[in-house]
């Protein structure tokens, strides 16, 4: 049996449509480099119907593993079932999108498979015959090229990093049924804790605060700017919400809102992938940070190496001057 690049799709409907197609894009690229066959797998109580959707969305052949009673993700079940399935399917690479779910079970699965595990991969790099997986480190400032020393490698792929496959016919679906009763991890379901502030979706400009604003009181400086920029809203990075300076419903990033305003003004934000995943699609990005090497500058249209606390008041004055000149 030809070695495979095995893509593990998630159960939820939202992810099936978009993320699985990105993952298929990655898996196909990797399969071509390594002369493997890309193959998709999906688990759960609705695997039979979801498997058909997945085969249509990705064009890949799908193994649909029907697990009666498994309505949500359960780490013990995933690890237990995949530990059996991965060798059966002769997978050289096992890949999933870097979601909260994959982050939860991928490292443990790798230990069971005696495999290397490389998380949040953004790029494939081929150097002579060696394949390396590029991922961000040190708050996104550097990119590490990581190689695997094992015959099986578990990979999680950063959402938004790979181009989705465009549909070209559906793959075939193979149906498998397995039962699994977790003993030490009991899933009690999911619940909605909070929703992202609806204003962020509608805002034309988002002024976003990072730890670099120094203290909560300095948010007032950003509010002053917001009062000049029409249809603008205030958001922030996770550390700012963790500190209690802003409510979590204003958080932009992997664990918060995903936004794509006309203007995203990043104020004192370092630019970790956890944050940029939520704002990289913005139409125009301006970053203000004291550190000239801050990762946020890599994706900014305009870079301002300044202290937010000094620069934003100066910007407010400059904008007022511009407005005055326009009226004259």
């Amino acid at each position: 049996m030809t070695p495979t690049v095995l893509l593990i799709a998630e159960q939820s409907e939202e992810d099936l449509a978009t993320l699985s197609r990105e993952l298929a894009g990655f898996a196909s690229e990797l399969a071509e480099m390594t002369r493997c066959i890309p193959l998709a797998l999906l688990l759960g109580q609705e695997a039979s119907s979801r498997g058909l959707e997945l085969a249509q969305a990705t064009g890949l052949d799908v193994v649909a593993v029907h697990v009666p009673g498994m309505s949500t993700y359960n780490s013990e079940a995933y690890k237990g079932i995949l530990q059996e399935m991965v060798p059966q399917l002769n997978a050289s690479y096992v890949c999933m999108v870097h979601t909260s779910q994959a982050a939860d079970y991928a490292p443990g699965l790798a230990v069971r498979l005696q495999a290397a595990c490389i998380t949040a991969v953004e790029r494939l790099v081929k150097d002579r015959d060696r394949i390396m997986f590029a991922r961000r480190i040190l708050g996104g400032k550097w990119e590490a090229h990581v190689a695997s020393n094992t015959s099986t490698t578990v990979l999680t792929v950063q959402p938004g990093a790979f181009r989705p496959v465009s549909g070209s016919g559906a793959g075939r679906v193979k149906h498998v049924s397995l039962s699994f009763a977790p003993r030490s991890v009991r899933s009690l379901g999911v619940r909605q804790e909070r929703r992202a502030d609806a204003h962020l979706d509608a805002a034309r400009t988002i002024i976003s605060a990072g730890r670099g604003i120094g203290k909560q009181d300095n948010l007032e400086i950003l509010h002053q700017l917001a009062r000049i920029l029409p249809n603008s809203g205030i958001a922030g990075s996770r550390p700012v919400c963790d500190l209690g300076w802003l409510d979590y419903n204003r958080q932009v990033g992997l664990t918060g809102a995903t936004v794509s305003p006309e203007l995203y003004l990043a104020c004192g934000i370092s630019g970790t992938v956890q944050h940029t995943a939520g704002m990289r699609q913005s139409k125009f990005i301006v970053a203000v940070n004291t550190d000239p090497e801050a990762a946020i500058f890599q994706l900014a249209d305009v870079c301002v190496v300044e202290d937010v606390r000094v620069f934003i008041p100066a910007l407010v004055e400059a904008l007022k001057d511009e407005l005055k000149r326009r009226r004259e």
């Binding site: 150097d127 550097w142 990119e143 590490a144 090229h145 994706l299 249209d301 305009v302 620069f311 100066a314």
Partner: peptide, 27 residues
């Protein structure tokens, strides 16, 4: 089981116009 082969400074995904001069001039 895995090895970091090298670390590189990532490329820019956008133009990244860097503003120069005094604070007021940049503003």
């Amino acid at each position: 089981r895995d090895v970091v082969v090298r670390g590189v400074v990532p490329g820019r995904s956008r133009k990244g116009l860097v503003l120069e001069g005094t604070t007021e001039k940049k503003a």
